[in-house]
């Protein structure tokens, strides 16, 4: 007999479950060491509440109605629910606030390896600690937590969601073109980016800068020292973060000036976690300094989320010595 389960979901049996648990225990121990308190929130939220985040980028997989006809969605991430918790349950608390979570989230995606519709996320949120110190703390927790799991070859790609828009406004790029350039970048399409710039009436040096900058990525020091003056000013925020990182964290960081996270609520530093054993990022995060304000408690914030299943695949891949591509 066949009793199907919804597309993009799956059962986890004891052997896999035990491995996932040992990963989450290692993460939890690190989060606890850094004083991040674990919280749970309802899997179901009112759609109108989650819509204060970015439901366009994080499309809910499942919508339902409750008895009174209100639209409910299964949460798409934990960042927005935690913003809600802070604004309601911690309305008068002195920041900074530190939370961690292990929770299932639900997204409307094309199901594929390590990218289910029901995904188990582990992450932290640091509320009320501005850049660069808050960002540096979160990156430190991220690196230490991944190392605690036994992941060895990972790197963190660090960029800034505000960098390219800021540069475009300095170069007086018209609004419509700016939107198209950002769209090409978020689709990772450098051919389209280049074509849009070729068609534009911008002066050649501006075009060259806008074409070249998002392709710059790699070890921080050589990258920063080779930046043209105008771009270097825009990248000052990144330098400030790097200056606060300890050696074991800094050695994991590469800069990526073309990094665009798809989430609308990111305002500053953004980052992704890469491992050579996996073709997709394992997780990522960034600063969202405006989101809490949308819930009535304006506080700067930063956090990250890791896909536990992806982390598991990467760990297993490292064990087998996978390096991406041919052996």
């Amino acid at each position: 007999m066949i009793h199907p389960i919804p597309s993009g979901t799956r059962d986890v049996l004891p052997e896999e479950s035990a491995e996932l648990r040992s990963i989450s225990e290692a993460l939890r121990a690190t989060f606890t060491d850094f004083s991040y308190g674990e919280i749970y929130t309802p899997a179901l939220e009112y759609e109108s509440v989650l819509a204060r985040g970015d439901l366009r980028a994080l499309e809910p997989a499942y919508r339902l109605f409750d008895h009174s006809g209100q639209t409910l969605v299964l949460r798409t991430d934990m960042t927005v629910p935690i913003a809600r918790v802070v604004a309601t349950r911690y309305a008068d608390s002195e920041p900074p606030l530190r939370f961690c979570y292990f929770a299932h989230c639900y997204r409307r995606v094309r199901p594929e390896r390590g990218r289910p519709r029901e995904l188990l996320q582990a992450g932290i949120e640091l509320i009320g600690s501005p850049a660069p110190a808050g960002t540096a703390e979160v990156l430190t927790v991220l690196v230490r937590a991944l190392r605690a799991c036994g992941l060895e070859r990972f790197r963190i790609g660090l960029g800034d969601a505000a960098l390219y828009p800021q540069l475009m406004s300095e170069l007086e790029v018209p609004a419509l073109l700016a939107e198209r350039l950002l769209d090409a970048l978020s689709r990772r399409n450098f051919v389209a980016l280049s074509e849009e710039l070729d068609r534009s009436t911008l002066p050649e040096p501006a075009r060259e800068l806008l074409r070249d900058l998002p392709q710059r990525r790699g070890d921080p020091q050589p990258l920063l020292s080779a930046l043209p003056a105008r771009a270097a000013a825009a990248a000052e925020g990144l330098s400030a973060i790097l200056a606060l990182l300890e050696g074991d964290v800094a050695e994991r960081v590469i800069l990526d000036l073309g990094l665009v996270r798809e989430l609308g609520y990111y305002t500053g530093a953004i980052f992704e976690v890469y491992d050579p054993a996996l073709g997709h990022p394992i997780g990522g995060g960034g600063r969202y300094d405006d989101l809490l304000g949308r819930f009535g408690r304006p506080l700067p914030a930063v956090g990250f989320a890791l896909g536990l299943e992806r982390l598991h695949i990467a760990l297993a891949g490292e064990e087998r010595g996978e390096n991406g591509g041919l052996p």
Partner: peptide, 18 residues
């Protein structure tokens, strides 16, 4: 014809790729 790249290779093998 287009040259395409994996997003993780694009970061971790940046030098070879560039």
């Amino acid at each position: 014809a287009r040259l395409i790249a994996n997003p993780v290779s694009h970061k971790l093998k940046a030098q070879a790729l560039d």
